[in-house]
Write a protein that binds this DNA or RNA. Structure first.
Length: 533
RNA sequence: GGUCCGUUCGUCUAAUGGUUAGGACUCAAGAUUUUCAUUCUUGCAAUAGGGGUUCGAUUCCCCUACGGACUACCA
């Protein structure tokens, strides 16, 4: 069971492909913990798992890792499912009708997919490990351990519960049998620790990073099962479920890399080396400015969402979501996919299907990526431009309603066509086209002082006359008539045009004057022009 | 402190021993324009440092620096 010796990424790719075509179906899982909303790093992990599975004709499984009863947050599980669904990342297994599946069926053969419902399975294996001498009962109190950690820290060392001190701590290795039995019966305060054997060089293999060699003396005897809630910790639950659920590839965040050696040892102790999946540890998503990994607080601090959907904690705390901020899921996913992976060409725009087709683990980047909100906006702009005008009109309707505009859809579509390439988000359409639906309530004083003079009133009156008499009322004609007037009277073009704009728009923005007049129609245009008089 | 992972423009990245080190976002300038935008063109901008190996290193090796993760009866 030695890890393969592979130097080049090229070779790794071949290996991954081979496994996919050797008959064994690719099965990957995304295994979040329902302790709060999924953040974009988690979404990216789910996405990469999904892309890898779909690219190899495999299955993508959602498993809920709720073995920490203390940190469970109501609503988090539903949030995770809804967020993935918004992104178009639909699990093949583990969730049905928006709910995590709790009993086995042909489609969901390894149910339940919620770990808190699988307690018996883990305790059986935990027991097995103890009986085999690979694990032991430990009774040390939190206070005792805390004290030891503190002391170690004061000496400038780290505390490890391992071969060096396990004989002198309170556990089944150091106590007489009857004392152990008494304690097991009397309290719910004990745990099972994995017994790491000393002086071993554990050879790990990561699909992204290659070979890693770990000295077993640096690993500590992790708690794998706790009697307080009769549930395992991540390490055991993970290994057991990945094997039970026939997972072939574990694609997870880099924060797990330090415990990979422990996991290898666990597979070994359970006699499961041949079922051990392949591992790929993803680089982390980092804060856009300073240092460290992206966190919930960064979104608030920097003014952009870090969650796919809005999240409410009680009634007070609200965290923004990309969906609520007006991002399209396609744009969001596209952006995320390229944060830590890229297919090598110069194209940056990919549909989910195209991502599936081009994704490969060997092109995952090795270093962490800082999230950049400008780029995220750019992606959204690209997707908005590709969007059908009819769809945009529907998306804009609620905003129009909010602003008291009641107008037929065809007119809305016409307006969107005029301003469509100026915006990145639907709500910007309103900001860029409000003057097409509503007369300005006030005139920008800055523009006014720049363009308004003693002749302006007279000019507007004369222009109103001209406009009212245009028979072939089209933008080019309107423009020509206005320009003729300016020419005949030898007036400065910019000044006159901007005076008209001032009256129509109220400020120095917007599409061409002729286009505006055409869109508004004679009556409304003339009404706006006459307001100054 | 210890263990592990990483390091190419400000940011995301391409180039896996031979390129004027490429693209995208941002920014700047110019062109277009009646305004604001858009669009187009151009520009600014990087191989962390030091040693090797080699005819030749962004690329392979070592050291240093820096960054990150982990170091819970959390995942």
């Amino acid at each position: 069971m030695n890890p393969p010796t592979l130097e080049k990424r090229e070779t790794v790719k071949t290996k991954v492909k081979t496994i996919g075509t050797m008959g064994a179906e690719v099965r990957v899982r995304f295994a979040p913990s329902p302790t709060g909303p999924l953040h974009i790093g988690g979404v990216r992990t789910a996405l990469y798992n999904y892309l890898f599975a779909k690219g190899g004709g495999g299955r993508f499984i959602l498993r809920i890792e709720d073995t920490d009863s203390q940190r469970f947050v109501p609503g988090a599980e539903e949030y995770i499912i809804e967020a993935l669904s918004w992104c178009g990342i639909l699990p093949d297994e583990g969730v049905e009708g928006g709910k995590v599946v709790e009993s086995p069926s042909s489609k969901h053969p390894y149910a339940p997919y919620r770990q808190s419902l699988r307690g018996d399975i883990y305790s059986r294996y935990a027991q097995q490990l103890v009986e085999a001498g690979s694990a032991y009962y430990a009774f040390d109190s939190a206070e005792e351990l805390e004290k030891l950690r503190k002391e170690a820290q004061e000496r400038g060392e780290g505390f490890l519960y391992n071969y060096q001190n396990r004989e002198s701590l309170s556990n089944s290795l150091s106590m007489p049998k009857n004392e152990v039995e008494r304690r097991l019966k009397e309290s719910r305060d004990w745990v099972i620790r994995f017994k790491v054997s000393p002086n071993r060089k554990v050879e790990l293999y990561d699909l992204i990073r290659g070979e890693i060699l770990i000295d077993s003396n640096t690993i500590d005897d992790k708690v794998i099962w706790k009697s307080s809630d009769s549930l395992p910790t991540y390490h055991l639950a993970n290994v057991v479920d990945d094997v039970e659920m026939k997972i072939t590839h574990v694609i997870r965040g880099e924060e797990w890399l330090p415990s990979l050696a422990l996991h290898y040892l666990l597979y070994e102790a359970l006699g499961w080396e041949e079922f051990r999946p392949q591992f790929a540890h993803l680089p982390l998503l980092l804060k856009p400015d300073g240092k460290g990994k992206l966190s919930k607080r960064d979104g608030e601090r920097l003014g952009f969402p870090v969650f796919p959907l809005e999240w409410r904690e009680g009634d007070k705390e609200v965290s923004r979501g990309f969906r609520e901020d007006g991002y399209y899921p396609e744009a969001f996913i596209n952006n995320l996919a390229l944060l830590g992976w890229n297919p090598g060409g110069e194209n940056e725009l990919f549909t989910l299907q195209e991502l599936v087709e081009s994704f490969s683990i060997d092109r995952i980047v090795h270093s962490g990526a800082k999230f950049n909100v400008d780029k995220a906006k750019w992606f959204n702009q690209e997707y908005l431009r590709k969007r059908d005008i009819g769809a945009l009109a529907l998306e804009l309707s609620p905003i129009l309603k909010e602003n008291g505009v009641d107008i037929e859809l065809s007119k809305v579509e016409e307006a969107i066509a005029l301003v469509g390439d100026r915006i990145a988000f639907v709500d910007q359409i309103w900001k860029e086209s409000d003057y097409l639906f509503k007369a300005p309530s006030q005139l920008d004083p800055k523009l006014k002082s720049k363009v308004w003079n003693d002749n302006s009133s007279r000019q507007l009156k004369e222009l109103s006359n001209i406009i009212s008499q245009i028979e072939n009322f089209t933008p080019p004609n309107i423009e020509e008539e206005i320009k003729n007037y300016i020419k005949e009277n030898s007036l400065p073009m910019g000044q006159v045009m901007n005076t008209i704009r001032l009256m129509l728009v109220g400020e120095g923005k917007g599409i061409s004057v002729a286009q505006i007049i055409y869109f508004l129609g004679k009556e409304e245009s003339l009404s706006r022009l006459s307001k100054s008089l």
